[in-house]
Design a protein around this nucleic acid. Structure first.
Length: 487
RNA sequence: GGCGGCGUACCCAAGUGGUUAAGGGAGCAGUCUGCAAAACUGCGAUUCAGCGGUUCGAUUCCGCUCGCCGCCUCCA
């Protein structure tokens, strides 16, 4: 049974979708005013994995992830750079798409944009005014927080407590300090849409209410995002949506934890942000390899825990992944028709699958799931040493790949995996750029070394191996006298 | 001030009211190897921040203390 930790109740709950077999899932995407960083990557990877697992479990998932493409920060950015806000939006939507593609994050079923839902937004704002939970002041529309008795139900706070914390802007136009804008008047040159309250633009929050209801209905199954969105963003979405529709909004709220760098929150003032793009550029590995390393790192901690990036974090993930690809390499090499350990495989694969599902069913416990995979890896290696038939080896490989697919791991062709270490990542390892040897050259050198070895010319043999190593080629001698190589 | 979370071996990180407290990285030793590498095997927390309480029994539940962190303002 799949259980999910619901932020609303603060507990793990059995997951039962509204319509059996189907899941509607809305995840807050990004406001497109800057490049995305590792924190965005975590959120994207976590919810991508949740989506993949729901599909693995047989649910038909409708996955919606929005773009907030009208916002104060976008306007500020456009003004700073003296260009039109639509250019800023276009640039960062493209950048986001590129980042997601690089991270092997699957494309959502819908990627709605706020600016494409103005009629729905205006309709919702008008409806909230009609119902008396919103009021107009000089072309601005505010939501009356005091009129929604459940306000604070998601973040588990009381209005009075929030006020006691001070730090709330005093805005004379608001009836209550916690009231928030549904609609703002626009200045000349700012993005603006005609509305019954004058020319203006939506406040933050309302676009997600309008888009989620438009694409998934008034009540839907899962709403997710980073934990910082719990308040005020998701709290306000609930207030708006439920006041407007009169129905309950999202049924399961899922929030992922933060990424910190050396235990510090990423922030521009600290200068410790890692953009996704920079990570790929610094890695030194092929993009597909880098993607799996980042995914492995992200999924090696539970999604609700904070995850800290240290100098060696990515390198550790890379090495852990090397083990699995070493196994896949050996599985690919199997060519015998019968194997002594074939009989053991069925049981191992069954346990792998049940262990994997048990872990994922428990609130998407990816670290546990990865642990299960690593444990089974050793068992399979033992079988391999005893002997596997080519057919069984292929079966093992396919199963590892199909389970790995849920996590977005082990999907690379073995010959494209890079076993050597060359990443700069966060530490300052120099990026060596030695010319790549062609496969023909490598095979030739291996042939020469083999001849040297059969003459017991160990000096020459080691010379060749060292020379290959300089070019990033790793040699491993098999018991039968042949050698395998990998980069 | 309010709310919430965390503290498990050198590092990362799961987990459980009671059999051996996963797994990965690093390390050490062994098997294998001409030597390596890989793989495998073994070693490594008598202990889960500290102190009390509940219990036949707690790392796991409760309370307190110490330390760290997040949210309460834009934020994945």
């Amino acid at each position: 049974m799949l259980t999910i930790h619901n932020t609303m109740s603060g507990m793990k709950e059995a997951f039962k979708p509204l319509i059996p077999g189907q899941v509607g899932m809305y995840v807050c995407g990004v406001t497109v005013y800057d490049d995305c960083h590792l924190g965005h990557a975590r959120s994207a990877i976590v919810f991508d994995t949740i989506r993949r697992y729901l599909q693995w479990r047989g649910f038909v998932v409708t996955y919606v992830r929005n773009f907030t493409d009208v916002d104060d920060k976008i306007i500020v950015r456009a003004n700073q750079e003296s260009r039109d806000w639509t250019e800023v939006v276009a640039q960062y939507i493209d950048a986001f798409a590129r980042d997601m593609e690089r991270l092997s994050v699957t494309v959502p079923d819908q990627e709605p944009r706020a600016t494409e839902h103005m009629p729905e937004i205006i309709h919702m704002v008008g409806g909230l005014i009609d119902k008396g939970v919103a009021y107009v002041v000089d072309g601005n529309v505010y939501y009356r927080v005091g009129g929604f008795s459940e306000y604070g139900c998601l973040s588990h706070r009381k209005l009075a407590d929030m006020l006691a914390g001070a730090r709330v802007d005093i805005d004379e136009r608001k009836h209550h300090p916690m009231d928030f804008a549904l609609w703002k008047t626009s200045k000349v040159g700012e993005p603006a849409w005609e509305s019954p309250w004058g020319s203006g633009r939506p406040g933050w929050h309302i676009e997600c209410s309008a888009m989620s209801v438009a694409h998934l209905g008034e009540t839907f199954d899962i709403h997710g995002g980073g934990e910082d969105l719990i308040f005020p963003h998701h709290e306000n979405e609930i207030a708006q949506s439920q006041a407007f529709t009169g129905k309950s909004f999202a049924r399961y709220w899922i929030h992922n934890g933060f990424v910190t760098i050396h235990a510090e929150k990423m922030s521009k003032s600290l200068g410790n942000t890692f953009t996704i793009r920079a990570l790929f550029e610094a890695s030194g590995y092929a993009e597909v390899v880098t993607a799996e390393v980042i995914r492995y790192f992200v999924l090696s901690a539970h999604y609700r825990s904070p995850i800290d990036v240290l100098d060696d974090s990515f390198q550790e993930s890379k090495r852990a992944l090397n083990n699995v690809y070493d196994l896949l390499l050996r599985l690919d090499e199997v060519s015998t028709t019968h194997g002594g350990a074939d009989a053991d495989i069925a049981g191992i694969l069954t346990r792998l699958q049940s262990g994997f599902e048990a872990a994922m069913d428990d609130d998407f416990n990816t670290p546990e799931a990865i642990g299960e995979l690593q444990r089974v890896r050793t068992e399979i290696n033992v079988c391999l040493a005893k002997g596997l038939s080519g057919e069984t080896a292929a079966q093992v490989r396919d199963r590892l790949r199909s389970i790995g697919q849920v996590l977005g791991l082990f999907q690379i062709q073995v010959q494209d995996w890079e076993f050597g270490e060359k990443a700069a990542w966060t530490s300052k390892l120099a990026n060596r750029s030695t010319p790549q040897l062609s496969e023909v050259d490598i095979e030739e050198m291996i042939g020469e070394r083999q001849a040297a070895r059969s003459n017991k010319d160990w000096k020459r043999s080691d010379e060749i191996r060292d020379n290959l190593a300089v070019h990033g080629v790793i040699l491993e001698d098999r018991p039968d006298g042949t050698s395998r190589w990998k980069r």
